[in-house]
């Protein structure tokens, strides 16, 4: 198992708070706590999925990993070297570590730039001056994502949604990063196109030895793509483990609730119920699941001290001492 080796990306005790400015004199009285003391690690060539609903802090987490948001506490290290705090590298160095594929393929491409310009810009910025090399790199990247190099002359609006997402992937790959953050990579795409993009992402991961952090709420996509799954609720990980444990033996009530809410056509037609209430496994003795009540949290308060305990092979769940 890869977990014995050093993780490629390690997040330790990360907290991110946003001061709330209110009132005439803009004094910040309180802070919204988007991420609370979160720890996660991503190993090389793995896909780690972060599952949660809107407002759980998963987008803030993505921005923090990419360096677009500063952590309030805690640290992130890449390949053993810290990338937050005093030793923080600049945008240029960071760009070669991690890139992002965005959810909305329409808003994520500059409508005034041809595909060629969008891909050549970053290459030149990172010091590739030789015209032939730039063209070669663009052509190979476009081929890699299933587009034709001659399509580079076109503007984004001349492409369909699926093709635009391929362009977005090409842009994320152009600097040859090690980690790619996938923010709901297929949820804005047509259903008949999703399989193409999912297959492409999995294929690229193997071919280029990439590591993914995928943010998603679509659990069937998560199950298909992930090596590990972390379920996030209100800025904390409530359950984390290998994909097969999470999907075969979901433990935390929130995970089970998420799984039960997915309208999966085939199980509905077969009239199965994947997560019946009475099947809920009891918590470890002396503990309760945390949080017990879903939907009753205060974003201004720091959460009570809780423990993240092992319940199975490499499978952890958040509990609170009773």
């Amino acid at each position: 198992m890869a977990s014995q080796t050093q993780p490629l990306l390690q997040i330790e005790n990360l907290s991110v708070c946003f001061p709330v400015s209110a009132g005439l004199f803009r004094r910040s009285h309180q802070a919204v706590r988007a991420i609370n003391n979160l720890s996660l690690s991503l190993h090389k060539n793995q896909c780690l999925s972060i599952v949660g609903e809107s407002g759980c802090g998963k987008s803030t987490l993505a921005l923090t990993i990419l360096g677009l948001q500063h952590p309030t506490h805690g640290s992130i290290s890449f390949d053993g070297k810290p990338i937050t705090g005093a030793a923080q590298p600049g945008r240029m160095q960071r760009a070669r570590m991690a890139q992002m594929v965005f959810q909305d393929p329409y808003a994520s491409l500059n409508p005034r730039q041809t595909i060629h310009a969008a891909l050549a810009g970053p290459l030149r910025l990172h010091g590739l001056r030789n015209k032939g090399e730039v063209e070669d790199r663009i052509a190979t990247t476009l081929k890699m994502v299933g587009l034709k190099p001659e399509q580079a002359k076109r503007y984004p609006h001349e492409f369909s949604g699926g093709q635009r997402q391929r362009i977005g992937i090409a842009r994320a790959l152009i600097l040859d990063p090690k980690v790619i953050v996938l923010d709901e990579p297929v949820s804005a795409l047509d259903v008949s196109i999703r399989a193409q993009i999912i297959n492409l992402l999995l294929d690229l991961k193997e071919r280029l030895d990439l590591s993914y952090i995928m943010i998603s709420h679509d659990l069937s996509v998560v199950e298909h793509m992930s090596d590990r799954v972390a379920v996030m609720y209100f800025g904390q990980i409530v359950e984390e483990g290998p994909w097969q444990s999470i999907f075969a033996n979901p433990v935390h009530p929130y995970t089970r609730r998420l799984l039960a809410a997915i309208p999966d056509p085939f199980t509905i037609i077969r009239q199965e119920d994947i997560t019946r209430k009475d099947m809920q496994p009891p918590p470890l003795s002396g503990f309760s699941y945390y949080p017990e009540e879903i939907g009753t949290h205060d974003v201004y308060q720091s959460p009570p001290p809780t423990e993240f305990l092992t319940v199975g092979d490499d499978h952890k769940v958040r509990f609170i001492a009773r």
Binding site: G162, I198, L202, E223
Partner: peptide, 21 residues
């Protein structure tokens, strides 16, 4: 992708519909 369909040690690519809408 269908919940519960993925096998432990193999990952079959999803069947694609070629082309674009």
């Amino acid at each position: 992708p269908v919940l519960g369909q993925r096998k432990l040690n193999e990952r079959k690519p999803l069947q694609e519909i070629e082309g674009i809408v």
